[in-house]
Nucleic acid binder design. Sequence first.
DNA 1: ACTTGACTTGGACAATGTCCAATGTAGGAT
DNA 2: ATCCTACATTGGACATTGTCCAAGTCAAGT
Lengths: 139, 139
Amino acid sequence: MSDLLERLRGRGWRMTAQRRVVAEVLDGEHVHLTADEVHARAVAKLPEISRATVYNTLGELVTLGEVIEVSTDKRAKRYDPNAHRPHHHLVCAGCGAIRDVHPSGNPLADLPDTERFGFTVSDVEVTYRGLCPSCAAAA
Amino acid sequence: MSDLLERLRGRGWRMTAQRRVVAEVLDGEHVHLTADEVHARAVAKLPEISRATVYNTLGELVTLGEVIEVSTDKRAKRYDPNAHRPHHHLVCAGCGAIRDVHPSGNPLADLPDTERFGFTVSDVEVTYRGLCPSCAAAA
DNA sequence: ACTTGACTTGGACAATGTCCAATGTAGGAT
DNA sequence: ATCCTACATTGGACATTGTCCAAGTCAAGT
């Protein structure tokens, strides 16, 4: 966790209480929080932190490549602190739980040139959908 | 296009002017419209149609499996009338253009059992990201 | 300790989507 | 052909998520 703070300082970040708190929240739990959830947890540690700051900080972390923005949910963006190992996501259609997964093979290679329409394809995002064990049992 | 209307009638849909217009808009252009764009085009044909009705109708069409909801954009859901051929999407990070693509191979098969965590995995959504030719030239 | 420019704040605003009570109407029944 | 009624539509209020900005605050270099 102090790794993250160190990296940020190294990049010329001014280290404020607010940024420290946001970084701690993200680093503390390896789940995929929405911006509002990050804000709620940040407020618990630093009551006067504002929503705007949380949004700003998350945006900066995404720009720096320290966290990944995931939009598996159509409602709110989620932030994935596990940015240093490439991975994809498995989402439960019932309860919305998200797990990181590591498929074999590289989906980028599965897109033939004839299907690229001249695009420079640089990234691929894969979302598996299904039911987690408890939601499947409840259904 | 009347295919779609026939299928809907067969499912017990009450056929109203509003629903006909929404179906025509979706069927007319095989692009990926946002709900608001659908509404704008629908208004052109039937000025008094309301936003709520467009949202309702789109939601029903999704439930019936006649159109697919795509969330490549983090802003608004888009609606893809090409629901009967499985396909994925290629999105331009510059201008937001979306193309349907058909990768070789089945990404579902790339997810080993050990990475499924007991989930019943039923679907996979793949979004390729990159730059379209004109955005790449402009950069 | 001072200074300065980057950071934070709070609140207004924007975009997208949902909900609901009142009203209208498609399509079966008569 | 007309009537009934359950289903559909409407418009506007509300909710959620996110962005923007002017004013105030503060970290860190000197």
